[in-house]
Design a protein around this nucleic acid. Structure first.
Lengths: 153, 153
DNA sequence: GTATTTTTCAGAAAAATTTTCTTTTATGCA
DNA sequence: TGCATAAAAGAAAATTTTTCTGAAAAATAC
């Protein structure tokens, strides 16, 4: 699917606020409500739009402590990687996990209540995972920028 | 604001799909449509719900290359940090930036089209920022887990 | 233990939005 | 130019959100 300038602008608006009405969008885009509606449906059908989610204030629900964990595996066979990845997927504290290049194999974004909970997570969950070798954790001191909106073309 | 079991469940549903109707939610929660409506409004008023966003398929819009950049500043005075943070905020390629503990000062999540674009981003934007010392980049080989939904209580 | 206040919930009605349908307009191409 | 395809607009229908009113439940005071 080829995106034109209107699609690009539409996606920019939708990424920031998914709850805008088509009427609001139509006036921003100088289009009819129906035209906006059909463009959005097409973007959904083509998988450009993945989903609509609600973002919470993590501190207000008691998750004020974000940690980035770098993890090195002991072995790197396909079975070991697969096993580790499947286990990581079951951990609620892990919001993101990427297999990355460099000294460490994986980078995890972990959210917990506080340092005590992180310790508990480390000891009872992370280091008990199969094939985990060394880990190196960076604690978040300050959130400088945090957006889900991507900019393209 | 104190969250009860229904709120917690409601937030779990909303985090996964922000476009469910109150009718759908009401049947999942065994409540009336109005009760669901008022609980959501209260969660919005109290800032538990931050916002509603649309997530895109980044590969389909030409941003298939994710890089984590670790950055060390040359100096660490308040003015230097503030200046750096303000500049980072203006860069579209940087989705996330956290001030972190450890060997490096900042961790950035960067999204670009490919390695060529990353090189361009590095040379023309990242390393031209004020006070940036050394950097260390990790390229994402595989996305293992990537969610915005947090689990609490 | 009872009364009072506050909060939560439910159903109906109103307002607004989404979705469908039909017609019109624009665009590309032989 | 004429035909085919796609995009857009307006109206109508269907659905959803939002408001309103009153009842039930929970918390607080006396």
């Amino acid at each position: 699917m080829q995106l034109d300038a209107i699609d690009t602008l539409l996606l920019r608006y939708l990424q920031i606020d998914a709850k805008q009405t088509n009427k609001e969008l139509s006036s921003k885009l100088n289009l009819s409500v129906t035209a906006v509606y059909e463009r959005i449906k097409k973007l959904e059908r083509n998988g450009i739009i993945k989903n609509y989610v609600t973002l919470l204030n993590s501190e207000k629900v008691g998750l004020g402590f974000m940690v980035f964990c770098h993890i090195k595996l002991i072995q790197h066979s396909k079975e070991h990687l697969t096993k580790f990845e499947a286990e990581v997927n079951t951990l609620d504290e892990v919001l993101e996990c990427f297999h990355v290049s460099g000294e460490y194999d994986y980078l995890l974004k972990v959210m917990v209540r506080d340092m005590a909970h992180f310790r508990s997570f480390m000891v009872t969950k992370l280091t008990t995972l199969q094939h985990v070798g060394s880990t190196q954790s960076s604690f978040t001191i300050n959130e400088v920028k945090n957006t889900t909106a991507i900019t393209f073309s």
